[in-house]
Every structure is written in structure tokens, then in C-alpha cells.
Design a protein around this nucleic acid. Structure first.
Lengths: 94, 94
DNA sequence: TTATTTGGTTTATGTTATAAACTACTTTAT
DNA sequence: ATAAAGTAGTTTATAACATAAACCAAATAA
């Protein structure tokens, strides 16, 4: 009846990040921070968890002289998201 | 873009409980426990939180000689659930 | 040159979720 | 009658989580 929800995605910020990255080639730290209205600290931590779960990849580089952190969703991440949504529906469809 | 999710409902078990109670006149502790597959301890704690939030009412009585805990959703609970689902959609509709 | 801003990371703290242990009683078996 | 097992929960201890605050390194502005 109530299928277990993936705890990695059952977090407001991590879900927002994954949701944002879906359909996007990639997005950088600052962009994600602005869209999700997260604090930098929290975002840093949660991106790490998503990466460790294999749901996103994080690439570090420089834009000019400044550090640039670029994130992309992986196939595994897309699959997990779709699964999460499917399971969520067992909760929200009355 | 990403509306904040009500933290009281953004919990697997509490969401399952509210989801279950919607459309039901009432349900007792054991029934809810079975349907949600929660442990009794966790369920006890989470029902308490839902009651303190005003989302459900809890009535204690006896069925024969045994204690009976009966839960019903309140109007406030129904409203919060509907709101939660609406906000969730900002996350899950791509 | 010192102050501020940018782009983050680390750390400390409070909150949450959960299982395990416990309470209080009832029913069943001996 | 008494011990063992079952029912219906609650309380408590612990681990996981979310978050803000403090921090770091470098760049830019004053």
C-alpha cells in the first residue's frame, strides 16, 4: 500500500536539486543555490550526498579565476527520481 | 519555484497516516499500524505529533477490556494535506 | 593595503525518525 | 492458581538529518 520512499530523495532540498537538474544539461552551484533558495552550507552538504548516492556528478573547474562547481544528474538519478515520484503517488492519490 | 513543504507532513509515516485517514471516518491504532507497516513506537510518536499539530484527533477508549486508540483527521489536517500535495507538485512535475 | 565579495567547505547544534525497552493489562496453557 | 504468551500501546536512547554559523582561499574594489 505505502511503498517505502527513497530517503535520499525524501529531503526537501535534495528533491528540489534533482527536480531542477532533470531536463537540464547541467547547473552550477550558484544557480542551484538561487533557484532552491538554499543556504550555501546546506547545499554543499546535500550535493555531496547526492553525489555519493551516484545521483549526480560534480565537476570542479574555474570560470576565469573563480572556482566553479557544475552538477549534472546521472541516469541513476533520473531513475531514482522517477521511482520516487511513482511511490509518492501511493501516498497522495488518496 | 519550489514552495516550502510542510515539515509535519514531510515525513513518510505521518504522510501515510494522514493519507490513510482521508476518506475514512476513523481508524484505530492497530489498523493504522498494519496498513502503514510502522512499528508501534514510531506510530505512537508520530500520531502524537499529528495531534499536537491539530491534524488529527485521538480518542482513547476500551474495546471490551482492551485499550482502543481511535484517530480521525480534522478539517485542518485535510487542508494541510491538500496544500502539501499542491506544493509537492512544484517538485515532481519536472 | 585593507575591506568586501565570491564561491564554496567544515563544524556545531538542534530536530527527526526509529528501534528497543518498558508498562499495564488480558488471555491461554498447565 | 500461576506462569507464559499476547495485546495495546508509551517512553527512552540513539543514530541520521537539516541547518546556520563559522570558516577558508582567492579575487576585486575602495
Amino acid at each position: 500500500m505505502f511503498k517505502p520512499l527513497n530517503p535520499i530523495l525524501h529531503s526537501q532540498l535534495r528533491l528540489a536539486v534533482v527536480s531542477l537538474l532533470i531536463g537540464l544539461e547541467s547547473a552550477d552551484f550558484v544557480f542551484i543555490k538561487e533557484k532552491t533558495e538554499a543556504t550555501a552550507g546546506n547545499l554543499s552538504v546535500q550535493l555531496d550526498k547526492l553525489e555519493k548516492a551516484g545521483y549526480i556528478t560534480i565537476k570542479k573547474s574555474f570560470k576565469g579565476k573563480r572556482p566553479l562547481t557544475t552538477c549534472s544528474i546521472t541516469q541513476k538519478g533520473v531513475g531514482a527520481f522517477e521511482d520516487y515520484v511513482k511511490h509518492l503517488k501511493t501516498y497522495i492519490n488518496k
